[in-house]
Design a protein around this nucleic acid. Sequence first.
DNA 1: TTGAAAATGAAAGTCGTTTTCATTTAGATT
DNA 2: AATCTAAATGAAAACGACTTTCATTTTCAA
Lengths: 147, 147
Amino acid sequence: MKEFLRTKGFKMTPQRELIFRSFFELEEHITVDELYDKVRILDRSIGYSTVWRNLKLICKVGLAEEVNLGDGITRYDRVTKVPHGHLFCISCKKLEEFPVEQLVGLLAQTAGDKSFTPENFKIEIQGFCEKCQKENANDSKNGEDDV
Amino acid sequence: MKEFLRTKGFKMTPQRELIFRSFFELEEHITVDELYDKVRILDRSIGYSTVWRNLKLICKVGLAEEVNLGDGITRYDRVTKVPHGHLFCISCKKLEEFPVEQLVGLLAQTAGDKSFTPENFKIEIQGFCEKCQKENANDSKNGEDDV
DNA sequence: TTGAAAATGAAAGTCGTTTTCATTTAGATT
DNA sequence: AATCTAAATGAAAACGACTTTCATTTTCAA
């Protein structure tokens, strides 16, 4: 990794090492705050902006990308081999993934129809995850708005 | 419209009338700032927060919904009969729509596989619109990064 | 006409993100 | 090993879109 960064003109530092390592160990879709908390456990002196900058750097060198779900918080998603969509639970804010191979063809085709050159796509489904679904079912014994 | 709002416990005011009318006259995907600018032409005394609050109100009563593309700016999309996806031009930031009927089935099915109950979905394709595509083609006479 | 609830405009507050700046550090070059 | 320059760091401030507060005004049902 040090070499990889060097060839791109970046230096390795203890902080960076720690941040990178933590990021790649963690589950996907982490926020700056979450990563900050995690690295602070290992090194109390690391600053928020350093974590933020390194997350940006990870994106810049192509190892992650920002994900925006519209809740105002940027998440960082490791760039994986397989394109995927997101299932965002409205209730607990948890983010799951789902495969999208079947969709890619259709999307490209759709975009193509409009003389639009796609570079990237995002598919997000908002709803309730299995867990919250059950909990909500319990909450609404006296159904609020239908049948 | 006045009646419609009254039944929901909201009052009509000259400012609200103007804001609603402007919103529904305008093209889709407007931002608060854009609508603010537009109504200010007709009434210099309208405040930003009034425009913002009314845009929220339009959403609350189900006539529009917020769209978040990840550029940090909330757009307001009239609720239309037909579900659609967005084509977001990376270059000029213009937003086009495309139909998604074919996709809906697939998405529901995919989500279903994970015991996830979908409420809403967003499909966004980022890329270059026809116009920017041509312009970029001109810009990159000396191809920067491939073959 | 009147009174309570809703709406308004200006200003301040919030909060995630980004930049600034003084200082330290990495690592290439002597 | 010492030196030097660009990069990196941490703290704090700045930024900007969004949201709330508050004093005042307006709507509209009674």
